[in-house]
């Protein structure tokens, strides 16, 4: 009876895993297959990957630049903002905390539309990479603020600050010596989330991009629509290679921050 139940569990889990993984594996394999219509018997090749690089290298570099830009903004704006919110007592600060998360609930398309309405006529900005970066910052900043706030709340920051102040530490030293080191697990988890989200972001970027400011996911959509299946699949493979290590690191950092919070 128990063996049967176990067997059933394994079967269901296996099916679910297969359902999720097989399309991804198929796609990855297609990316290195010489001719998709003749199957694997046509041989393996890296030509398609090279072709992707030739056509779309600029989108890879752009995505990386924008992800790093979003990360820099999240660190420079998000960490101090979380610090200020954690220290501020009162209802206004709690209301702002909720408000900060609002972009998460609004579809990326709506956010992009708002940006276009506001800045669309500002041509130099509209066609530059900065325009996309602004969208990504709006979208990713709440994740950093949330991650850091959670750690600050768990360590009772105001009490630690009072303790440091009683020992003679002026405000800037409390920030450097107490707030930042104790927030580190939250900052790390937030940073990985920001980079991963930025690299994979499509909705908002698709609305904001111009032919000269394509990011990797926008390029993917472009290749799916207009290239051979092998090229599109090879492109997906490139995306996997970039984003998988980030996802693994994110899981690890989130687990670490969780352990810290507990």
């Amino acid at each position: 009876m128990r063996a049967a139940a176990l067997g059933f569990q394994i079967a269901v889990t296996g099916l679910a895993v297969a359902f999720l993984l097989i399309p991804a594996l198929m796609s990855a394999v297609t990316g290195v297959t010489a001719n998709y219509f003749r199957g694997l018997s046509s041989g393996l090749t890296l030509d398609w990957v090279a072709r992707v690089w030739e056509l779309y290298a600029s989108t890879v570099w752009r995505s990386m630049r924008i992800a790093l830009g979003a990360l820099a903004a999240a660190l420079l704006i998000g960490v101090p903002a979380a610090y200020a919110l954690a220290r501020a007592p009162g209802r206004l600060a709690r209301a702002i905390e909720e408000f900060v998360s609002l972009p998460l609930a609004v579809p990326g398309l709506a956010l992009a539309l708002a940006l276009l309405q506001l800045y669309g006529t500002w041509r130099g900005f509209r066609i530059s990479e900065w325009f996309i970066l602004v969208g990504h910052v709006l979208y990713t900043l709440p994740f950093m603020i949330r991650a850091v706030l959670a750690v600050f709340a768990a360590i009772d920051l105001p009490k630690l600050e009072e303790a440091a102040a009683a020992l003679g530490a002026p405000p800037w030293r409390r920030f450097i010596d107490i707030a930042v080191p104790n927030a580190a697990p939250g900052v790390l988890a937030g940073a990985l989330t920001v980079v991963t989200l930025s690299i994979g972001e499509f909705n908002l970027t698709w609305m904001l991009h111009t032919p000269l400011t394509k990011t990797l996911p926008v390029g993917l959509a472009d290749s799916y629509a207009s290239m051979r299946l092998e090229v599109a699949s090879a492109y997906t493979l490139v995306f996997f290679v970039m984003v998988l290590p980030l996802l693994v690191a994110m899981q690890w950092a989130a687990a670490r921050a969780q352990g810290f919070v507990r």
Binding site: L160, E162, A164, A166, G168, N182, A184
Partner: peptide, 20 residues
């Protein structure tokens, strides 16, 4: 004078030791 300039020693109810 703010607390950091008063040169007092303070023991908090929760001890508030720095975890880092």
């Amino acid at each position: 004078l703010p607390v950091e300039a008063r040169h007092v020693g303070m023991v908090f109810q929760s001890y508030a030791l720095f975890p880092n």
